[in-house]
Amino acid sequence: MAVPKRKMSKARRDKRRANWKLTIPGLVECPQCHEKKMPHRVCPDCGHYNGKVVVAAE
């Protein structure tokens, strides 16, 4: 079993644990209503996907 030869300092140990930040999802503009939406998803505002009405908008 691998055993550390020396004690790892808190700075070196905590450096590995600093990957907690999230990234913003990439948003694209809907070609029909020009609102921001997730790519490859139905637009929540107008209900269009790939140039066709898929979901009836309220």
Rank of each mutant, 00 (worst) to 15 (best):
N50A: 08
H40W: 11
V28K: 05
D45L: 14
R16M: 07
E29I: 10
C46F: 03
T23P: 00
G51P: 00
M8T: 13
G51L: 00
W20G: 07
K21I: 01
V53Y: 01
V54M: 07
M8P: 04
K15C: 04
P44V: 14
R41Y: 12
M8G: 05
R16H: 11
Q32H: 02
R16T: 03
M8S: 10
S9W: 03
K5I: 11
C30D: 03
G47R: 07
P4L: 04
L22G: 06
I24Q: 10
R17C: 05
I24W: 10
D45C: 13
H48Y: 15
E29C: 05
P4T: 06
A56K: 14
I24F: 12
V55T: 12
S9I: 02
G47K: 11
K7Y: 02
A2V: 12
C46V: 00
K52Y: 03
G26L: 13
V3L: 13
I24A: 11
C43W: 05
A56H: 12
L22N: 07
P4D: 03
A2N: 12
V53Q: 13
K21G: 01
Y49M: 07
M1Y: 01
P44M: 09
A2F: 12
L22F: 10
G47N: 04
M8A: 13
W20Y: 15
P44E: 10
L22C: 10
K52L: 06
C43N: 02
W20A: 11
V54F: 14
W20F: 12
N50G: 05
Y49H: 10
K7A: 03
L22M: 11
H34K: 08
T23W: 08
A2G: 10
H48Q: 13
I24S: 13
A2T: 12
D45Y: 15
E29M: 09
C46S: 01
V42Q: 07
R16V: 06
V42L: 02
R6C: 11
P25V: 00
G51W: 00
C33E: 08
A2Q: 08
L27Y: 09
A57M: 04
G26H: 15
C46I: 01
P4S: 02
D14H: 02
N50T: 02
C33Y: 01
V54C: 11
K21P: 01
G26K: 15
R12L: 14
R41H: 15
H34R: 09
P4R: 04
K10N: 13
H34P: 00
E58P: 14
M38R: 09
K15Y: 07
V3Q: 09
N19G: 08
C46R: 04
R6G: 07
V55Y: 12
C30Q: 01
C33S: 04
L27P: 01
H34Y: 08
N19S: 06
K21Q: 07
V28N: 03
C33K: 06
P44K: 14
E35L: 02
K37M: 14
E29L: 11
M8L: 14
R12K: 15
H40G: 03
M38I: 03
E35K: 06
L27S: 00
V42E: 10
K5P: 02
M8C: 09
N19A: 09
M1G: 13
E29Y: 06
Q32M: 01
E58Q: 08
N19R: 11
C33A: 05
R6W: 13
R6H: 14
P25R: 05
V54E: 10
M1P: 09
E35R: 05
D14W: 08
P4M: 01
T23C: 05
